[in-house]
Amino acid sequence: MTDFLFYVAKTTAYRILVVVITLIISLILFGSTLDKVLMDRTRAEVVEASAQDNVQFRTLSQRQAYVDEQVDLKLKDLGLDEPWHSPKRFINTFFDILTLDLGRSNFFTSDSGSSKVSDIIIEKVPKTILLFTTSTVVVVIIGLFLGTYMAEKRGSSLDKGISFVAVVSNSFATFWVGMLMILLFSFSLGIFPARSTPLTSPGDPFYVLDLLYHMMLPLITLVILSFAVWSFVVRYFISRVLDEDYIQAKRVMGIPKRKILYSHALKNAAPPILTGIVTALIASISGSFIVEAVFDWPGVGKLLYDAIIVLDIPVILGSTYVFTLMYVMTMLIADLLYAYFDPRVKVSS
């Protein structure tokens, strides 16, 4: 047990390190741009304040001098007089991002009307997680059952068909499949809405139902894109396990086929399946971000897409940070499941 705890601590520390490094590199790349954004914003605030102060000036240059002085004061006050790469500024900004304290957005507001970046992002996170986890759970269930079934019926037309779909669907662009779904289900058949932003307000009793109804199309898109790949991975490793002697022995002993498949084969094939699936899972995080943009699903991915169009740097930083967290959490869960299924991992660490 202590081995396992040690392993958990170690992997968690490593994943945290990944977040830190990602943030540091983002900060280095965005540093000067972020500086400029903050400076411009401070200047705009000062100009606005001086207009409201009703201070009279005789000449334009006097007014300019006053504004410049006020801006300098304010910059010093905020610590912006030092460049972004000074250690103090760098560490401050680093922790600002860590806590999503990214000031205000110029372009976006939250549902409640706040323009604070943290409010805007935090409001969207649950929707992104809802879409991503639902699609992952659906795909895992389909993948496990279909994959096991395919392994049992190796060489059948279903097996060949799904394997082909797996190769082909790997080359499909997520956003394109999403657009096809809209074309088919919204434009031609009119079953689901093209825009996935629910029309009812969050306080409405039917809001949850409405939200789920609007989630159907992005969900179907994500499932269609990944179920075949998952089934293929599961099928591949289970069929390898099925060839092993101990499974053959169980068969001879008369243990029901179904039991062999789902409890013995599946459990023994779990570690390699997990490794194979992590790649697919990681791809599906970016996939679910992109799908949000196609369907206007009100999540972080859609926010990121919109922020890139108007180049709202604080929002981009915040959204990519959320993406990094989701990515790292997924990797961490995969690591832990791997250790749970494969006891050797714990010992070797």
């Binding site: 490593y14 994943r15 990944v18 490094i21 990602t22 590199i25 983002s26 790349l29 965005f30 741009t33 995080i285 970016s286 971000f289 990121l304 890139i308 180049l311 981009i316 990519t320 993406f323 990094t324 990515y327 790292v328 990797m331």
Partner: peptide, 19 residues
Amino acid sequence: DLVISLPTFVFLIILSITI
């Protein structure tokens, strides 16, 4: 190991915007 575990999607976005 480190390069493998970095979120590539995030870096591609940030690099294309800044560089």
